[in-house]
Simulated assay, not measured.
Amino acid sequence: MKLKPVAEQVIVITGGSSGIGLATAKRAARMGARLVLAARTRPALAKAADMVAQAGGQAAFVVADVARRTDVDRIAEEAVKRFGGFDSWVNDAGVMVWGKVGEVPEEDMRQLFETNFWGMVHGSEVAIAYLRERGGALINVGSVESDRAFPLQAAYSASKHAVKGFTDALRMELAADGAPVSVTLVKPASIGTPMPQHGRDFTGREPRFPPPVYAPEEVAATILRACERPVRDAFVGGSARLISTLGSHAPGTTDWISRTFLLPQERGKRPATPTDNLYEGRSEARVHGDHQGSLIRPSLYSRAARNPGATMAIAAAAVGLGALLLRRGRVREGA
């Protein structure tokens, strides 16, 4: 399967007005791509399109709620109308709810799934209907929580597990049909977006992501590499790979680490943000958020992983570290 260079592509990005989506759009614009951005808030989309123009690119935008299939159809229609089609489709739109099971209302959990899961399903189906005939890349933004759940994030973790299951099944079906479509699941760790300020909270304090917190630009670079070179799964941040590996081989130990160390770090010191974007878009065309003292850092792991020559060395190191943690975990679980 051969994919075009980003410079020759039209790329659709849902959730393109802030965070990872906006970081991806800006980087793609600097590389020469043309963009179609979708989100629920027109002012933020217009500002995002201006940022793309300032970076030297072209961007159309569509006010759309990915939970509605008809809105997602309009995104594809705009790409065809404005640029003659698209080469890559990035499903990045997502929302967050923090709170213990039993404290988060069912309607809020269902709304989260409408965006995080059904929005991804709608985007995937619309993209595949077009790409089956022309070829290209579908990139679904999951999370380390596609592999490993975190406390206070049960609904979000469940939605990202669902994203992984759908993506894996779709990839197999397309391969069986011989469709020229690359399907990638991106699994970031804690990323320095405005999500803590945008999410709905039931803890009484503004949540925070457990450190280390990585730069959204690292996810953008990984997404755009997947637009050019087929890859099955891509972690962003060394901690994502570590948590996934440890969770697979020593789940009891990972549970203990999560409840002992991660859970306290998720509770910030400030009062909760009074507004959120669960039901309505409230983004401000910002890539970065406020993470209450956590440094937003680059990921040496992700940068090495994007270098094909380093892949085997990274894999060997991950296996060695995983084996060490597994041995320690078995000792703890056997105690």
Rank of each mutant, 00 (worst) to 15 (best):
F113N: 05
K100N: 01
G165V: 05
A149F: 13
A149L: 06
D65W: 11
I139T: 13
Y130E: 02
D168F: 11
V141D: 05
V104Y: 04
R134S: 10
G123L: 08
S146Y: 06
A79S: 10
L138W: 11
A154L: 06
A60C: 10
G135T: 06
N91F: 11
A158H: 01
G119L: 04
S88R: 00
K160M: 02
F61W: 15
E77P: 05
A127H: 07
P151T: 04
V144W: 03
V95K: 13
E145F: 13
A162K: 09
V66G: 01
V104M: 02
A155D: 01
M96T: 03
G94K: 08
A76L: 12
W89V: 06
L152R: 13
G165Q: 05
R132E: 14
G135W: 02
L112E: 11
A67G: 15
S124R: 12
A76D: 02
T115N: 08
L152Q: 09
R69V: 14
R134A: 09
L170K: 10
V144Y: 05
A55E: 14
V163A: 14
E106T: 11
N91I: 11
Q153E: 10
A162C: 04
A67K: 14
H122S: 02
W98K: 02
V62D: 04
G135L: 01
V72F: 03
R110W: 12
V52M: 02
E133I: 06
S157A: 14
L152H: 13
F61K: 04
V80F: 07
D73E: 15
F83Q: 07
L138E: 04
R110Q: 12
A169C: 13
H161P: 05
D168N: 13
A76K: 09
V63C: 06
Q54I: 10
D147I: 03
S143E: 03
H161K: 00
M109F: 08
A93R: 12
F83I: 08
Q54R: 14
L152N: 12
P105W: 05
G135H: 01
D71C: 01
L174Y: 08
Q58V: 12
L174W: 08
V95I: 10
A79L: 08
D108V: 09
K81C: 06
V97I: 14
A67Y: 00
R69M: 11
G119K: 07
I139F: 13
